[in-house]
């Protein structure tokens, strides 16, 4: 594919969205005014909890839903006026694995190749190349219904790439996959991105966004609340983080938090939170003043069972920005639910 498929009006933007709103007929405001520009070649992450509006946004970008307000240009084409041109220049991988289970892997890709108008002469080569890319070459002639969840996901990804689109939408592509299958899929995405393809990925896994994305937008309640590279966002949290493990009971954690806040140990803008394990202090020079806090806690008769000083992670960013924790237990429970039946080979 040559560059003239990537019409950009000189702006070099794969996605240009302004004031996008989407309100469902029942009155639910899923997206409330999103402004977003994704330059060509970027690996862009859209991070948010369940129900934050990620899927609705990706559906408006990929012509599946027409925005109720605002404008969206994808690869230079307006999603409302030229939906078919948009469809020609994007790949889309839905949250739920979408493969035709009665067709073989090869037939699934061939169907997509024909549907996307890949010329007859190039089809066979392209199909082999894609089967190779997603490591399904040796099972190419098996019916997709026999595949494991991870294999189906990879096949799904291959069908979204068949026309070598300049922009690919990935809606929570690794939800429900075991870590091994997830890592493998990440490798493919990185490989595709290295070839110059713009990737727009939604995820609720911070680790995924951190590892893959050049830039991230955090969405909450249908609005973008922060945008930046993972490093920038982490810097925004500022300082270092001191986690102190305090056993629960007798208000020990609350008292510990009080001491950290009031005890004259840290600067006034230090952020203290009670966590599942004790307390967490985000402050400049937490490393230097950490011991002072531990001494103060001991003097107050509070038992400390452990402590750790670290740089902020995207988890902290998410917590700081949204005030919500992407609860890890809930997440892994969700995860297991989907994983169970899906990943087992049938």
């Amino acid at each position: 594919m040559t560059d003239d498929t990537r019409r950009t009006d000189g702006r070099g933007a794969a996605i240009d969205a302004e004031g996008v709103e989407l309100t469902y007929a029942d009155g639910t405001e899923a997206v409330k005014g999103i402004d977003l520009t994704v330059p060509e070649g970027e690996f862009f992450g859209f991070l948010g909890a369940n129900g934050a509006g990620k899927t609705t946004t990706i559906k408006t970008f990929s012509t599946l839903l027409s925005p109720t307000a605002g404008s969206i240009t994808v690869n230079g084409f307006d999603v409302r006026d030229e939906p078919r041109r948009v469809r020609e220049t994007i790949g889309y991988m839905a949250q739920e694995t979408s493969v035709d289970e009665e067709l073989t892997a090869r037939e699934n890709i061939r169907f997509a190749a024909r549907a996307y108008g890949v010329p007859k002469g190039e089809r066979a080569e392209r199909i082999d190349e894609l089967l190779d890319l997603v490591d399904l070459a040796d099972v190419g002639d098996k019916q997709a219904g026999e595949f494991s969840g991870g294999m189906k996901k990879r096949l799904d990804a291959a069908t979204a790439l068949v026309h070598d689109p300049p922009l690919v939408f990935l809606d929570e592509p690794t939800t429900g996959l075991d870590p091994k299958a997830r890592n493998r899929l990440w490798e493919y995405f990185e490989r595709i991105n290295e070839r110059g393809t713009t990737l727009f990925l939604t995820t609720q896994y911070l680790e995924e966004a951190d590892q893959l994305c050049d830039r991230i937008a955090v969405i909450m309640g249908g609005e973008i609340v922060a945008t930046g590279s993972p490093a920038e966002l982490k810097r925004r949290v500022g300082g270092e983080i001191l986690d102190v493990d305090v056993p629960a009971g007798e208000d020990a954690r609350e008292r510990a938090a009080e001491i950290a806040r009031e005890g004259d140990v840290f600067d006034a803008d230090a952020d203290v939170a009670v966590t599942d394990d004790g307390i967490s202090v985000t402050a400049e020079r937490a490393r230097e003043h950490g011991t002072d806090l531990l001494v103060a806690l001991r003097d107050a008769g509070i038992t400390v069972t452990g402590f750790n000083i670290r740089a902020p992670t995207l988890d902290d960013v998410f917590l700081a920005i949204t005030g919500e924790e992407l609860d890890s237990e809930e997440r892994s429970a969700d995860h297991d639910d989907v994983t169970g039946p899906e990943v087992t080979a049938e």
């Binding site: 469809r87 739920e96 979408s98 108008g117």
Partner: peptide, 11 residues
Amino acid sequence: EGMFEKTLVMP
């Protein structure tokens, strides 16, 4: 199976 939506995104 999600194929309905998938074909809707195809040109």
